[in-house]
Measured scan of single mutants.
Amino acid sequence: NNDALSPAIRRLLAEHNLDASAIKGTGVGGRLTREDVEKWLAKA
């Protein structure tokens, strides 16, 4: 759900042209964290 994304995470996803639904969030309530996105980028 994009409503649950912080502005910083939205920007990070946009910079790398990523789809938030492709990344499993580990934050509160399954929210994406910066670490989630960075780990996903490291694997890609």
Rank of each mutant, 00 (worst) to 15 (best):
G27A: 04
K24T: 12
L32A: 03
E38Y: 15
G29Y: 05
T33Y: 00
L12H: 06
A14V: 06
A14R: 14
A44E: 11
V37R: 00
G27F: 04
V37D: 00
T26M: 05
T26A: 04
A14M: 10
L13N: 00
K24W: 07
L5T: 06
N17R: 08
T33V: 04
A20E: 08
A14H: 08
S21K: 11
L13I: 06
I23Y: 02
R31W: 07
G30S: 04
L12Y: 08
P7G: 07
I9R: 02
A20G: 08
A22R: 10
D3M: 08
R10A: 08
A8W: 11
I9W: 07
R11S: 06
A22I: 13
G25N: 02
I23K: 01
W40E: 09
E38T: 09
L18A: 07
V28Q: 12
E15Q: 15
N17Q: 08
A20H: 07
T33K: 04
R31H: 07
V28G: 06
V28A: 12
A44Y: 15
R10Y: 06
A20D: 05
A8R: 13
L12R: 04
K39E: 13
A22M: 15
T33Q: 03
A4D: 14
E15Y: 15
V28W: 09
G29H: 08
V28L: 12
L18C: 03
K39Y: 14
W40S: 07
L18W: 07
D19R: 07
S21T: 11
R34I: 15
N2A: 13
G29M: 09
V37F: 05
D36Q: 02
L41Y: 07
G27Y: 02
N1Y: 03
E35W: 13
I23A: 02
G25A: 07
R10T: 06
E35V: 07
H16P: 00
L5F: 06
R34D: 10
V28T: 11
K24R: 12
G30I: 02
L13H: 00
A22E: 13
K39F: 13
R34N: 08
K39V: 08
R31F: 07
S21N: 12
E35M: 09
T26E: 03
N2T: 13
